[in-house]
Design a protein around this nucleic acid. Structure first.
Length: 285
DNA sequence: GCCCAGGGATGCG
DNA sequence: CGCATCCATGGG
């Protein structure tokens, strides 16, 4: 089977694709060629190639509408950034990562990916997820797609361990069983808090992973996932301004930052995560 | 050998 | 509730 190739253009003023891919929201992409701004992106059962031109990106794909939605080009980021920049803590993060957009990814892929992410690092997560595609995803054209829920349900804990899932293997098997009983179309109409509670009941999903699923899978921006990088950013940039300099738990940091940024919390989180990890710590890739 | 990585499950008070 | 401890795995 050979997929037909089409393409579309995105102006560089709308997005910085390298920043967008490297800010921790997605694991299924690779740099292609020597140009550090050329990528191949896999999402669910689709792929796109990104080529950097002088003033725009050329996106080559077998599914133009999917990737036009994927890059979320309609959201007014200039407005979001102008509001968030009024907070002095976000001025430099937005300056550094102002080309970031939060992608509209496939929900199932986000759920599975972020269960792998727990107490793990991005390099290992990426390798495990590519192995998951290659071993258990169906061959489609010249690449492997992300496994469907049915395909995932046939993977054993032993097989999850073979791709580096470690102690998350049993969690994943149990989770996939639970996912088959959930109606996600019903979930999509609930408030973020209510979805959060249902997600946390699932195997392998705690408060942080649930927040990531809400932000990247449900595109809810009123949540603020707190991981080790956000914890560091909080200590670096916020804690000195506070009266209570005792140790803040992740739950307390989350409450503080969601109340501070409201419906724009998710965007603020991405700018902060990116700034802490890719600028201050220089942990590129 | 220790510490860390986009933390979660479990048990104990 | 909050908290401590344990959990695979690879890199620094």
């Amino acid at each position: 089977m050979r997929e037909k190739k089409e393409s579309f253009i995105i102006n560089k003023e709308k997005i910085n694709i390298a920043q967008t891919l490297k800010c921790g929201q997605i694991f299924s992409y690779r740099q292609i060629s020597f140009n550090p701004d050329n990528f191949i992106i896999f999402s669910s059962n689709k792929k796109a190639e990104v080529y950097e031109m002088k003033e725009h990106y050329k996106i080559c794909t077998d599914n133009v509408p999917y990737f036009q939605n994927f890059f979320d080009l309609e959201t007014d980021y200039e407005k979001i950034k102008s509001i968030l920049s009024k907070d002095k803590m976000l001025v430099k993060p937005i300056e550094f990562g102002g080309g970031i957009r939060i992608l509209r990814q496939d929900l199932l892929e986000v759920i599975i990916s972020f269960v792998f992410s727990a107490n793990n690092n991005i390099k290992r997560i990426t390798e495990s997820l590519f192995a998951l595609r290659q071993k258990f995803g169906k061959h489609y054209g010249d690449y492997e797609i992300f496994p469907s829920l049915k395909q995932l349900s046939e993977i054993t804990a032993e097989q999850f361990k073979e791709i580096g899932a470690g102690y998350r293997a049993e969690q994943l098997v149990k989770l996939i069983e639970q996912l088959q009983k959930i109606n996600f179309d019903e979930l999509k109409h609930l408030s973020s808090d209510k979805i959060l509670k249902k997600l946390i009941d699932l195997s392998g999903i705690g408060p942080k992973v649930a927040d990531c699923i809400l932000l990247f899978g449900f595109n809810r921006t009123d949540v603020f996932p707190v991981d080790t990088w956000i914890e560091k950013a909080f200590k670096n940039f916020y804690e000195s301004d506070l009266k209570n300099t005792n140790h803040w738990s992740r739950a307390e940091i989350r409450k503080f930052l969601t109340e501070r940024y409201g419906n724009l919390a998710g965007y603020a989180q991405q700018y902060l995560f990116n700034y802490q990890r890719n600028f201050h710590n220089r942990q590129i890739i």
